[in-house]
Design a protein around this nucleic acid. Structure first.
Lengths: 209, 209
DNA sequence: TGCTCTATATATAAATC
DNA sequence: TGATTTATATATAGAGC
């Protein structure tokens, strides 16, 4: 959908392939977001570029965000979580905001695209390295928390379902008991009735049982 | 894009939400397929419906397929205790290969604690860097896989519970219907019996109802 | 990359079967 | 659910900055 109809094969021109990747990737994410909102479903998307870079998308709505907060407050108390998660949490507060990270990605991608990294000084590179590391920590931390959160949400769902299930089972048991009592009453009733009815109505009784 | 512009919020009408889900889901998958072909990237999509059903999409080389296979065999082999992340973490630490990593951490911590890193040669440092990077990759990969496993397992559980729930509900409905029929029969029976019984047995009948 | 613009190609909402 | 149809809404290719 554009000026020209594209053949469904790898775009050879590196530049326009990159442009298309960028456009369509965001388009796909947008679509995913819409689908998750409109239909109330959870969606996860992982895109690995040929260079191995990972782009991901995750949804769950603000339900996840709220659960995330609850989870975070519990996190302190429940330190039984794996060490690396805990470690990542410590780093999380230390490092810069995501704006910095966005800028970093921009810079790095441009620099990696054109091999002019030689122009950077050792100090520049060290700085870049630190920033990248920080960015990675942030991403990992956020990803981990999102996934942990998803797990937590699912556990809660599970609990609720099991509870509901138990209630239903109890209800059934209760109904069965009632039914038994009713049946017994009917049997008893029938016995009494048999003693007092003529053959005509006994015929109806047999039909009932 | 359609006869009407949709508001970006959950579609309330269950039926049309389902239709939209179906259409947009396939649309999303198609887009993903196109993106993966045009730009030569690997894409994985997981969609969890509110009822817990999983729709997935995978593309690209056999990278994802392999990951999935690994996941499958992993599930088969370790179904026993792979119920959730926390328990799997225990298992996690049992892996012998991570001892290397533990040692590495120790070394690094010691070296970072006391700034005597100068004593290490550039070659040493490069080697150390490589090992750390490799260890990190292993951990991250395994962690991600474990969490994905956990999520998947939980979603499966959820599906099963919902199914069971539905069955129980049906059962209850059926029992209620039976009960109604039985009551009707009793009422009818009572009417008949009333016409043929003496006052003594009618007393018993009233007790029943 | 990131935007903008414009012409077109696609996706899809609603209705119907 | 799935297929079709039709009217519209969106996405995006290509070009330029």
């Amino acid at each position: 959908m554009g000026r020209k109809k594209l053949e469904m094969k790898k775009i050879e021109n590196k530049s326009s392939r990159q442009v298309t990747f960028s456009k369509r990737r965001s388009g796909l994410m947008k679509k995913a977001g819409e689908l998750s909102v409109l239909c109330d479903v959870e969606i996860a998307i992982f895109i690995f570029s040929s260079r191995g870079k990972l782009y991901e998308f995750g949804s769950g709505g603000d339900g996840l965000a709220k659960t995330l907060q609850r989870y975070q407050s519990h996190l302190e108390a429940e330190r039984k979580f794996s060490t690396d998660v805990y470690e990542e949490e410590k780093y999380h507060s230390k490092y810069a905001s995501f704006q910095t990270f966005a800028e970093l990605l921009q810079i790095v991608e441009r620099d990696l695209g054109e091999p002019n990294m030689e122009q950077l000084s050792l100090t520049d590179l060290t700085q870049l390295e630190k920033q990248l590391d920080s960015a990675l920590r942030q991403i990992r931390s956020r990803k981990t928390r999102l996934m942990m959160d998803s797990v937590q949400t699912l556990h809660q769902k599970e609990s609720m379902l099991i509870e509901e299930n138990d209630l239903l089972n109890e209800e059934i048991t209760a109904m069965e008991n009632n039914r038994k009592q009713a049946d017994e009453v009917i049997v008893g009733f029938n016995a009494i009735a048999n003693n007092h009815m003529n053959s005509h109505s006994r015929h109806a009784t047999l039909h009932v049982l």
